[in-house]
Design a protein around this nucleic acid. Sequence first.
DNA 1: GTGTGACTAAGAGTCCGTT
DNA 2: AAACGGACTCTTAGTCACA
Lengths: 74, 74
Amino acid sequence: MEAATLQKRLGSAMRERRTALDRSQESFADLIKMHRAYYSAIERGERNITLHTMYRVARGLGVSVKDLMEDARL
Amino acid sequence: MEAATLQKRLGSAMRERRTALDRSQESFADLIKMHRAYYSAIERGERNITLHTMYRVARGLGVSVKDLMEDARL
DNA sequence: GTGTGACTAAGAGTCCGTT
DNA sequence: AAACGGACTCTTAGTCACA
């Protein structure tokens, strides 16, 4: 599978989890101490993020990294 | 959780899956077209790998990324 | 509230050889 | 068969101003 496809699937899964929590990108990015613009790029699937970054997002969403992978079918 | 801990957990999960398949690091690295020295560092938990790299390893092991995360309790 | 281009520092990832 | 080192290139992490 293409790298861009992987990233988009994961980004979409994150966006769905975040909106389900009724949080804006900005407030969520603040919560996990990440820059708003960077988090935006992740959700759009423009970043090939590392394990550590995935973990930070997952924790902020209140789920495990495994859960995100399952959502993203990865 | 510390970045180093995340990496070690994932690296160990990969190592267990690989050895269960009776493959050397070298032959496995060749299979997924990755350099053996780099793959060795991943299993030792010395690299904070990206989504794309996780996917390549998971595919080589015949499992999903989700499966690896579950093994690693992440 | 979100998207985007441009930017730098740090680290991911490759390739060589040696132990 | 696996660990480790140096030297290298490319991309991610992270920030900013502006749309």
